[in-house]
Amino acid sequence: MKPKFGVVVFPGSNCDYDAYYAIKKILDQDVTFLWHKENNLDEANVIILPGGFSYGDYLRTGAIARFSPIMNSVIDFAHKGGIVIGICNGFQILLEAGLLPGVMLRNMSLQFVCKDVYLSTENRNTFFSNEIQIEKKAIKIPIAHGEGNYYASDDVLKSLQENNQIIFRYSDSSGKISDEVNPNGSLMNIAGIINKQGNVLGMMPHPERACDPVLNKTDGQFIFKSIINYLTN
């Protein structure tokens, strides 16, 4: 059975359609939009919180979104083990909602940054990364954010490491991690983490922007294919 993806639409989401398109047209899966004022998840097996500026984000990014009706349902869904992926603004919302630990600061440069980056996969044994082969030293996926500077206390960082919750780190094309390739100042070059249970992923890079072969980059497919693989096998 094909899994069904649900893409949450906040009024200021602007990557909602991109995620929908990648899943529907490129990966050929079932997908539906979920309006922020609703609380029905429409029987989706995977929830995507897409990128954008949920409610304008003039306050802290994601700070208002976490109180929306749909988020109550998403939080319940996650607590029951449902698969949730927050991309960019979606990651920020997951942090605000307490589904993932840590916070986002403004980028070290104090500037918005949009470019292709490389990610080293630190844990390939998750719902979200099982399709990334060991030979793949780094995957190329774009970022586009002003607040992607991941920060957490030492204790939290330590527990993230101990539980293998850090999935993606900014690297060079060979998978080497250094300050030079850290685009936003994130601690330990963190680009994506999961919760302890492993069913919630937050990542700043945009996998949906690296799916369509027309755009000459397809590494984002690995993430969606990993989820599909997990749910169908």
Binding site: F112, C114, K115, P142, L215
Partner: peptide
């Protein structure tokens, strides 16, 4: 300049 702009949203930028 252009890295401060989102140049890829809408996934049509070839």
């Amino acid at each position: 300049v252009y890295e401060q702009y989102d140049t890829m949203v809408r996934t049509n930028t070839i």
